[in-house]
Design a protein around this nucleic acid. Structure first.
Lengths: 398, 398
DNA sequence: CGGATATTTACAAGTATTAGACGAAGTATT
DNA sequence: AATACTTCGTCTAATACTTGTAAATATCCG
């Protein structure tokens, strides 16, 4: 059970207000009051906190018929910089943002399969950040925080990578390793959580309180947002939806089990479906995941695979919709981006066929509209949240 | 987004403290302070609120080595009475509790298939309550609240039965119908939520903050508790887990879809499994659900059905464990009660085979240990929560 | 009967929300 | 140009809650 104190209320309200400003791009105090449950006085207080911290500014004023014009609040980009890093088995992708979460610069550095020791990876991350800042000519002091997403399961409070299957990591104190090399405020998490937070602040989840962000890439996962805040579960393991059983006794999955969602709707799973339907298909592209998925997105012959995949993914999603009853389900990651537009109509039908009416009636199923790498954006968003907590000291109303 | 005010903190803390006292049966302020995250001062304040409201009493004192003995707090049974009613398609089951949630009396009244109009059902409920009180010789004025569980989907805030498939109810204003006939504080919900709350206050979920209560009866559902409070979803439809897909393209389900969890591990589903494995089995008991499940629980020949059902249910549960990452999964309702003891060992293996290690390591999978009807207990618990909010006016510290 | 010890209460300090009064900054009207 | 009106934002007072600390209380032990 969480400790409940008045400051927690304030922190939650602060995040609520700030997220609305980011989500809308800009908003007046009145706009916020209309949309949120808070009183105007509270909003004014919180906004003053945020103005005092320099996180937002009164960008301009807009007339209101007759009367005092309202101040339009926007994120204060020039206040400083944020870095978001998306680390995967094959690359380190680092992006630089201003405080308004506008992307300023990006860099990607491949990682060879021989590089897998935690210290080595940490070094690559550090160098990627150094390069990013150097290329953009940004002074290190202007960076307010760095968010890093590493694959697998992460315990953010402990700063530990609990388990990363690709590298066979177990309980690696990644935060400490990075800390000594980077020397900036640092926040560690995994791609699932980062992607979900990106949707919550900047993507299709902007309006939602209960949100499920489904990642469909090589792997499959589901980040869950409840009441506007990320749900992590008892041991930071929530959201491993990819290994729910969809076809009992079905395909073998890389996790050792059978019939997992991931084995059907992850990129390798879709390729397997293609092989089943048309063993000699040219669309397989010699087994290249990326090429195959792109080919499916473009080819007029992909209909059967699309239909079958939509059916499978829809049935799986329906389970989530039935249990969580969310306002929004966002599909993200690269497979969703490539195949999503073709998948979506049949997918919605399939979900509707398997979900209960009342839950189905409440949910919007949409594709992510975040351009570029959502994971590094999410990682930077973690850094933003962390910076906010750090910069606003309690009781600054005097 | 919920409105956040300081009183909400107090209400949450009050419920937290009270639930711990009920869960443990009795506890000293010190015990509570040790187990909860709250400061001793807060606990003392909250306890004084509860004492003032007469909900708990200082039952006796117990020595503490040397020094002032601590007061042992217990629910104050004699403060008044609570009624919990479990309504199903075939019966109205009403139970009388004291404020300590000890069952004092119970009565069950069958409903014929011709009785299905909301007004008729409301009348049956009212009469069941009248009979319950009369039989126990309890004065109506002593009843502090009545909780009623009706089947299907319910919107408790609106007091509406949104949908009850068995009776073909749509948006029935049940609370209003009952209100005029009963004239006592009334709380409406459905069996899934009631059963879950019963586990949270009085059952296997007593220690848990994140809990999933899986109902395995004729139907199948999953009540979700997050951070110590019931999760209802965006439109009060969360927890309809029975219609998640477990076997894509599998058995037809009564919901119209195929391969639902319920079609395999609900009572009719288990019978279907039995028919598949041994078409002429005597254990089928001529198609009588209750008899068949009981026969399976007792018969030495039920091994294959048990194994297969454990495999299916385990795979389905693993999905829940992976997504929610709960501390506890409780199996409740009548099928779980009958078959649970035989099912559990293989069930745990099956869950472990399909769930990820980290989530699996954190979860306890147990059978409900609530004797009798958990739904009416849960309904009475809703009434208790409601009474608490009503009786404690804000700012009683003067 | 007088410490010693543990429990409980009381209080002050710090932080929050919020209604309502008031000042600020425009437009419309005379 | 002066005045009225409207809308927006600030500020103050009232109220609520948590929590650390000091004081009061209750029992045991010698």
């Amino acid at each position: 059970m969480l400790r409940r104190t008045t400051s927690d209320i304030r922190r939650a309200n602060r995040l609520d207000v700030l997220r609305r400003i980011y989500a809308a791009g800009s908003a007046s105090r009145q706009d916020i009051a209309r949309r949120s449950e808070l009183s105007f006085a509270t909003i004014a207080n919180v906004v003053n906190d945020l103005l005092g911290a320099g996180v937002i500014v009164e960008d301009h004023f807009v007339g209101s018929g007759s009367g005092r014009p309202r101040a339009v609040l926007t994120p204060n980009g020039v206040r400083g910089l944020l870095v978001g890093v998306d680390v995967a088995e094959t690359y380190v992708h680092a992006e630089l943002f201003d405080l308004a979460l506008r992307r300023l610069h990006a860099g990607e550095h491949p990682i060879g399969p021989e590089t897998r020791r935690p210290a080595e990876i940490a070094e690559r991350i550090a160098r990627a950040i150094d390069a990013l800042l150097a290329e953009h000519g940004a002074a290190r002091e202007r960076v307010l925080g760095v968010g890093v997403s590493v694959p697998g399961q992460v315990a953010p409070q402990l700063g530990v990578s609990v388990f990363a299957p690709g590298w066979d990591w177990h309980d690696v104190p990644m935060l400490a390793l990075l800390q000594e090399r980077i020397g900036l405020p640092l926040y560690l998490d995994n791609p699932l959580m980062a992607g979900t937070v990106a949707e919550l602040w900047s993507g299709a989840g902007r309006e939602a309180g209960n949100l499920v962000c489904v990642t469909v890439g090589t792997g499959v996962g589901a980040g869950v947002v409840i009441g506007g805040s990320l749900y992590r579960g008892t041991t930071d393991a929530a959201g491993e939806w990819g290994h729910s059983v969809l076809v009992y006794g079905g395909r073998a999955c890389r996790c050792g089990s059978r019939g997992c969602v991931e084995a059907y709707v992850g990129a390798p799973g879709i390729m397997e479906t293609l092989r089943e339907l048309d063993p000699g298909s040219e669309l397989l592209c010699g087994g290249d995941q990326t090429a195959c998925v792109q080919a499916l997105a473009d080819s007029p012959d992909a209909g059967p695979v699309i239909t079958r995949t939509a059916g499978l993914l829809g049935a799986a999603l329906a389970g989530l919709v039935n249990i969580i009853n969310p306002e929004t389900v966002v599909l993200s990651s690269w497979v969703a981006r490539s195949l999503g537009p073709r998948l979506l109509p049949e997918l919605r039908e399939s979900v509707a066929a398997h979900a209960l009416d009342r839950a189905m009636g409440a949910v919007h199923i949409v594709l992510s509209d975040i351009p570029g790498n959502a994971v590094s954006l999410g990682a930077a968003t973690f850094a933003l949240e962390g910076f906010l907590d750090a910069v606003i000291s309690p009781g600054r109303r005097t």
